[in-house]
């Protein structure tokens, strides 16, 4: 079931394509939310041994939460990109005539952030990391050894947290 609410509040501020692109690492990077989501869910789907059910349920709960994190960070990126071209066409003819001396829509795409946010997407988030590498299912690791998987997940969360700290300084 999907609840039409976000897991945390997105505080409105100025558009910021560079900040949006930094957040792409947290969404589609090797230690990003898409990876944690898929890793914990696959570990849950593949879980063996009924006596270990509390461990499977823990993985399921965290994996499910990560879906909400993917939703939150992707929406945040979208909000940071929204309106970032600073383009205000007239209300009646919102797209200026080419070469008519008006503003050029999306001209910011040539100098800011990730050009794919404007060329491939429509001022929206993409399933890629901060330098544009597409998210890869090869990031997902499920050894079948519970201790190894838990240790690996602990490393994943710690690294994810460490990577986020520079962007708030």
């Amino acid at each position: 079931m999907h609840v039409q609410q976000l897991i945390n509040e997105i505080v409105p501020d100025e558009p910021d394509p560079a900040a949006a692109n930094a957040l792409q690492e947290g969404l589609g990077g090797q230690f990003g939310e898409m990876r944690t989501m898929m890793q914990y869910l696959f570990q849950s789907f593949n879980f063996r041994g009924a006596t270990g059910k509390p461990y499977r349920d823990l993985l399921y709960g965290i994996g499910t939460e990560e879906i909400g994190h993917v939703e939150l960070i992707a929406t945040t990126i979208s909000r940071l990109l929204d309106g970032s071209p600073r383009y205000n066409g007239s209300p009646t003819a919102p797209l200026d005539e080419p070469a008519a001396g008006g503003a050029t829509p999306l001209s910011i795409a040539l100098s800011a952030g990730n050009i794919h946010h404007y060329l491939v997407g429509a001022q929206g988030s993409l399933p890629v990391d901060a330098v544009g590498n597409p998210w890869s299912g090869s990031y997902v690791y499920n050894s079948g050894n519970l201790v190894l998987d838990l240790l690996y997940n602990l490393m994943l969360e710690s690294t994810g947290r460490l990577q986020k700290c520079p962007s708030t300084r």
Partner: peptide, 13 residues
């Protein structure tokens, strides 16, 4: 980044 939109989401995560 001093951008409040980025900071709110990053702090939560």
């Amino acid at each position: 980044s001093s951008n409040k939109t980025l900071r709110s989401t990053v702090a939560y995560l």
